[in-house]
Every structure is written in structure tokens, then in C-alpha cells.
């Protein structure tokens, strides 16, 4: 792991309200289409399926009537102190300090050692065991946003970084400061297409952005906070068991 979290002036991040998520999977579908993620006929091997955002189902393990469950969409956390970055031997993944704190993934530079996958505590990365395949004709629906990735490299969520560059370019053209984007100017595909409104996106350092308020709410928490990766993704839930399950460290803190 790096020596400590990097200081960021702008900290693009996400807040997911798991109490609102219906588990419909629209975010997964949106992400695949937006980022040209290849299709797989054999989808039963979940651990090898490439998906930049996964909707996980959590339950409290109790029986009815105490049984409770939530859906937890999980893209890359874009950690402020990313465990995946220092282990990469070819600098194929970097923490962008200047551009809002994204953890980049440069697929052509990747040599496929998968150290980053081992290091990532959130299983946010996926490895291309095969060349990406689309059924005949379907390759016509590839978007211009993200290059396709080849066999032998790791890939992951980028918070739709191409949308960020497009929003900045637009701000330049309009003579505005590209470092002061409004929260509606740059939204990843998963957030845009969520029909439940469970996903929020913006600058976590900007008090004018909704995510700032939400991330400071008493129900906000981060996954595995105790390991110190400082994710730029917060979850909110009023359910105590969800917070406890997500963050053992927080539970200890509460107990004092």
C-alpha cells in the first residue's frame, strides 16, 4: 500500500443509498454498454465474468420475520490510498492526483500479472482470460467511449472517465473553469441510468454537491474502512446491520 492517502483538491466520488437500490441491475447493463465490456456465453463462472460494477445482495442471515436484505452495487472504489497502485510492476495503474482522484487502468501497458487483483480488497478488478467477443453484428453497437481490451490484461471501472474529459472539454469551449464542474455536468453511466435514484455522484470535497452532504450524513459508511484504503465511494443505509457488516472497524469505533 502507498504511504498514505493522497491529498486531492477535487475528489470525484459516489454515494450509494442501498436502502433505495432495488437490485434491478440497470447499472450493470449501462456500464457494459458504455464501456464496451465484452460478452460471455458462459456466465456461470461469476468469478471470471468481467463486470465493472457488480450488484451484490446482502442479508442479515436471520429467518422471517427478522430476515432483511439489501442490494449493494459495487464499482471500483477509486481509493484515495489505493492498494492496487504500488504493486503494479509496470505502472499500468495510477492514482490521478491532478484530475479528481481516479485510479486509472492503462490496458495496453498491463502485462497481466494480476498483482493488482490480489491487492484490491474489493474485488473491483477483472482479468481478460479471452479476447472480448460480441456476436456477429453486435460489434456495430460499440461506443466511441472506451477502447476494447485484449486478452491478458486487467480492466476495471473508471467512473466513466471519458465523460469527465468531455465535460472538461465542454467547459473549456464555453470559457469556464474546467475544475469547477457542476454536479450534473459529469455523471457516470451507472448513475445516469439508475431508475431508482439510488446512486449519486459529484465532488466529495465540494459542499455544494449532494454527495458532500450525503457522505457526511450519520448513516454514511465505507466498505472495510479499517484497512485504510480511503475509498471515494460511500454507502448510506439506515440499517444498522448493513453498516456493521460493511465496516467492522466502524463498529469498534462506535463501541469506543
Amino acid at each position: 500500500m502507498a504511504s498514505g492517502p493522497v491529498e486531492l483538491k477535487i475528489r470525484w466520488g459516489m454515494v450509494i443509498d442501498v436502502d433505495k437500490c432495488t437490485g434491478c441491475g440497470a447499472c450493470m447493463t449501462a456500464c457494459q454498454a458504455e464501456n464496451n465490456v465484452g460478452l460471455e456465453e458462459n456466465f456461470s463462472k461469476e468469478h471470471r465474468a468481467i463486470s465493472w460494477i457488480k450488484v451484490r445482495k446482502l442479508d442479515n442471515g436471520k429467518s422471517f420475520p427478522d430476515y432483511d436484505e439489501v442490494y449493494m452495487p459495487q464499482p471500483c472504489m477509486q481509493c484515495q490510498n489505493p492498494p492496487c497502485v504500488p504493486v503494479c510492476p509496470v505502472v499500468a495503474t495510477e492514482k490521478g492526483v491532478e484530475d479528481g482522484g481516479f485510479v486509472s487502468q492503462i490496458a495496453p501497458r498491463c502485462i497481466g500479472c494480476r498483482y493488482c487483483m490480489v491487492a484490491c480488497p474489493y474485488e473491483s478488478r477483472a482479468f481478460n482470460w479471452h479476447d472480448p467477443v460480441w456476436p456477429e453484428g453486435m460489434e456495430k453497437t460499440l461506443t466511441p467511449n472506451t477502447s476494447t481490451r485484449m486478452r491478458g490484461v486487467v480492466e476495471k471501472c473508471t467512473y466513466c472517465h471519458h465523460r469527465y474529459t468531455a465535460a472538461r472539454a465542454k467547459a473549456y469551449e464555453e470559457g469556464r473553469d474546467p475544475n469547477e464542474l457542476g454536479e450534473d455536468e459529469y455523471i457516470p453511466a451507472c448513475v445516469e441510468k439508475c431508475p431508482s435514484g439510488a446512486l449519486y455522484f459529484g465532488d466529495l470535497n465540494n459542499p455544494e454537491h449532494t454527495v458532500y452532504t450525503l457522505s457526511h450524513s450519520e448513516n454514511a459508511f465505507r466498505l472495510l474502512e479499517k484497512i485504510g484504503a480511503e475509498p471515494q465511494l460511500y454507502y448510506i443505509s439506515e440499517r444498522d446491520w448493513v453498516q456493521k457488516m460493511a465496516d467492522y472497524h466502524l463498529e469498534l469505533k462506535r463501541k469506543g
Partner: peptide, 23 residues
């Protein structure tokens, strides 16, 4: 050299190319 080799050898020509242009 290793880096460049890694980059260029992995740009397999049979990987589908994405379209260029405005949406």
C-alpha cells in the same frame, strides 16, 4: 523497450475497433 513491446504486441488487430465521431 519492454513497455513498448507490451503495448504494441497487445494491440491485437482482431480486437474490434471502436467508432469515431460524435454521438
Amino acid at each position: 523497450g519492454i513497455d513498448d513491446t507490451a503495448i504494441w504486441t497487445q494491440n491485437f488487430p482482431w480486437i474490434p475497433r471502436i467508432p469515431k465521431g460524435d454521438v
